[in-house]
C-alpha cells in the first residue's frame, strides 16, 4: 500500500487509512482528511517538502512526515 508522501503532482487517490493517533489524527480529520475522501496532489514545494494537496475543493499543505501517515489508493 502506498502513502500520500509517495505520490507525484497530478496523482489522484482515495484515502484508505490514517495511521496516526491523537492530536495529529484529529487535526487531519478536522481539515477533512477522512477515509474514503478523494485527494489530488497539486504541488511539491520548491525544496521538496511540504506538499500541496486538493481535498474537499480547497488546498491543504502538509509535510511529508505527516503525509506518510496517510495511506492511499491511487485512482487511475
Amino acid at each position: 500500500m502506498t502513502n500520500l508522501s509517495m505520490l507525484k503532482p497530478g496523482d489522484r487517490a482515495l484515502i484508505s487509512n490514517i495511521g496516526t493517533k491523537g492530536a495529529l489524527r484529529r487535526r487531519l480529520m478536522d481539515m477533512g482528511v477522512l477515509v474514503g475522501e478523494e485527494i489530488r496532489v497539486e504541488k511539491v514545494a520548491p525544496l521538496g517538502d511540504p506538499i500541496d494537496i486538493k481535498i474537499k475543493s480547497y488546498h491543504l499543505s502538509l509535510r511529508k512526515t505527516e503525509a506518510e501517515e496517510i495511506g492511499v489508493e491511487v485512482v487511475q
Binding site: 480547497y58 491543504l60 502538509l62
Partner: peptide, 8 residues
C-alpha cells in the same frame, strides 16, 4: 508541531 496549513 505539525504543519497542516490551508493555502487559502
Amino acid at each position: 508541531p505539525m504543519f497542516i496549513m490551508e493555502l487559502p
